[in-house]
Every structure is written in structure tokens, then in C-alpha cells.
């Protein structure tokens, strides 16, 4: 358990370093939902290549590190209905709110952005309520 916290903090520092690099080198706020969403709704058509390059790194690099671990298991559900419903909620929600855990959470809160803090409060609230409902009340997960 203690090791999880240490690796959490180390990984967190790496995430912060990635956000720092993207901000200082490219002049961009690192937000996963915004980078992908801007490609999908064409709102980011002036920076298509930059967005695709970011996503290419995000997709290509983690699998190279997976062999360093004995096991990497996402423990994600195999229920397709849950996956589709959750994916739709995350897709619509992050675009309505203009950000997710990286954009509003990491980059917004560190900038002392009111929107970042408000978004973080409400996605934690939404996540906590849904988890308690789905796991402890409805018992579907």
C-alpha cells in the first residue's frame, strides 16, 4: 500500500513534468479531453498535427514500459453496456465542461483557476455518487 503512494507521487511528478513541457515548449495547456475533442469536433483544426503527435506519444509510449512490470491489469469491466454508457458520459461531459482530470484538475488547479476547482469538485462528486450508487445500492459493479 505504501509503495502505491510513492509510485503515485512519482507518476504524478512525471505527469506534472509533461504538463510543464507542453506549456513551456508548445505554449499549450495539457488536457487529454481537449486535445482529442478538438480533433473530433474540428475546433482544433489549426493544430491538428500537434494534437495527433501528442496522442501518438500517449498511445505509443506506455506499452513500451509495460514489460517492466510483472503485471499491468486495468481491471476494467467487460460489461459492454457499462463501457458504452460510461464512455458517452465522459465524452459529452468533458466537452461540455471543457476539461477533465488533466486540464481542469492538474493544469487548472495549479493555475488557481476557479473553473478548475469547481470542475474538480463536481467531477469528484459525480464520480463518488455514481460509484456508491452502482456498487453499494444497485450492485452492478
Amino acid at each position: 500500500m505504501h509503495q502505491d503512494w510513492i509510485w503515485g507521487a512519482v507518476g504524478g511528478l512525471m505527469i506534472g513534468a509533461a504538463a510543464a513541457l507542453y506549456l513551456l515548449a508548445n505554449g499549450r495547456v495539457l488536457g487529454a479531453s481537449g486535445i482529442l475533442g478538438g480533433l473530433i469536433d474540428r475546433s482544433g483544426r489549426n493544430s491538428t498535427a500537434e494534437r495527433l503527435s501528442f496522442l501518438a506519444g500517449l498511445i505509443a509510449i506506455p506499452p513500451l514500459l509495460v514489460p517492466l512490470y510483472a503485471v499491468v491489469d486495468t481491471h476494467v469491466t467487460s460489461n459492454p453496456v457499462l463501457l458504452i454508457v460510461a464512455g458517452l458520459l465522459v465524452g459529452i461531459g468533458t466537452r461540455l465542461a471543457n476539461g477533465c482530470t488533466s486540464g481542469h484538475g492538474v493544469c487548472g488547479m495549479s493555475r488557481f483557476s476557479l473553473r478548475g476547482f469547481v470542475a474538480t469538485v463536481f467531477y469528484l462528486l459525480g464520480g463518488g455518487l455514481m460509484l456508491v450508487l452502482a456498487r453499494h445500492v444497485l450492485e452492478v459493479i
Binding site: S33, V76, T77, L82, L83, V85, A86, G87, L88, L89, V90, G91, I92, G93, T94, R95, L96, A97, N98, C100, T101, H104, V118, A119, T120, V121, F122, Y123, L124, L125, G126, G127, G128, L129, M130, L131, A134, I141
Partner: peptide
Amino acid sequence: GSLMFGAGWGLV
């Protein structure tokens, strides 16, 4: 939007 995102995040 954040509530919806959180709900999906919590679900899976």
C-alpha cells in the same frame, strides 16, 4: 459537464 464526466469516470 463535470457531473456527467464524473459519473462516467466512477462507473468504470
